[in-house]
């Protein structure tokens, strides 16, 4: 056992080092900047900016929640459908889900810009058929669409993973005991897939609430999210660089995400399944 213990340490050492350098140190830096002023003195003043950007926080959370909900509704049937295929076809299907991710995220978002524009693909097609077309680009709707498109695979994959693990005989047993389709779903499938749903929600909500590229490209710089504000403070796009305020806003965002994840994990425990959860 002792030998094993040493081996374990040796194997995990690079990961521990990695985590310390790329997770612990950056978070410590964020916390340091959040509570200091330009001269390095301790202060709470940076935190007051949360109130100034309260509305922006709310808009970001709202759009991220909407995107997450849409992703969930779209992803569950897809994940279920895929999980019912024979193993080899499942692989192909999952490949297809992942395929767009082989392309750069920015390029995919740019592509949506040309699709949605007033003279874009959809509108030109619509006009060809005599319709007036629609104006979705540069609205919050376009931002949500961009989020759903970009993050949908992160919802499908964990749900799919959990669903494939459910033994078919469990469903058969439920049916044998007289459960209709609806009851099978509501009382067997759904509770058993909660861990996948929870990790899916986290993996979509977290990047959605902190994005700044999607809002810039598809929102036309008019839908201003908290990610945009943080970016501005770090890059000085507005002519002012302030790591301290940027860090304090990031910290608040991080705490909000942590709180929501804790709440979600709590739901997860209620469901009594702790398998395959990515949260943590």
């Amino acid at each position: 056992m002792n030998k094993n213990g040493f081996g374990k340490k040796l194997v995990t050492a690079p990961y521990t080092l990695w985590m310390v350098i790329f997770v612990v140190v950056p978070i410590a830096l964020v916390i340091y900047y959040a509570f200091t002023d330009a001269d390095g003195g301790f202060t709470f003043e940076n935190m007051t900016y949360i109130f100034e950007y309260g509305k922006t926080f709310l808009v970001s959370i709202e759009l991220a929640l909407i995107s997450t909900a849409i992703c969930l509704v779209m992803a569950y049937p897809v994940a279920y459908g895929i999980s019912r295929f024979e193993a080899r076809r499942q692989q192909t299907m999952i490949m297809l889900v992942m395929l767009p991710m082989w392309m750069n995220f920015l390029i995919r978002t740019y592509a949506w810009m040309t699709i949605l524009e007033g003279n874009g693909l959809i509108n030109r097609a619509l006009r060809y058929f005599g319709s007036d077309g629609f104006g979705m680009i540069n609205t919050e709707g376009a931002v949500v669409l961009g989020m759903v498109y970009n993050f949908l695979p992160y919802m499908i994959l964990p749900i799919y993973t959990v669903l494939t693990k459910i033994d078919v005989s469990t469903i058969e047993a439920a049916k044998d005991l007289g459960a209709g389709r609806r009851n099978v779903f509501r009382r067997v499938l759904l509770p058993m897939s909660v861990p996948g749903i929870i990790s899916g929600i986290t993996m979509v909500f977290v990047p959605a609430v902190s994005t700044f590229v999607i809002s810039k490209l598809l929102g036309g710089g008019k839908t201003f999210l908290i990610g945009d504000i943080i970016e501005n403070y770090f890059l000085g796009n507005t002519g002012m660089i302030n790591y301290n305020i940027g860090a304090s806003l990031s910290l608040v965002l991080m705490v909000l995400i942590l709180i929501s994840m804790t709440v979600m994990n709590h739901f997860d425990k209620d469901a009594g399944e702790g398998e395959g959860v990515l949260v943590g």
Binding site: E117, G118, N138, G220, G221, K222
Partner: peptide, 21 residues
């Protein structure tokens, strides 16, 4: 001016003006 503005952009001006967007 903001309600009249389609988008706040930099390099994307090339595309959006050329295409008539």
């Amino acid at each position: 001016q903001k309600p009249l503005v389609q988008a706040y952009v930099m390099d994307q001006i090339f595309d959006k003006m050329s295409s008539g967007e």
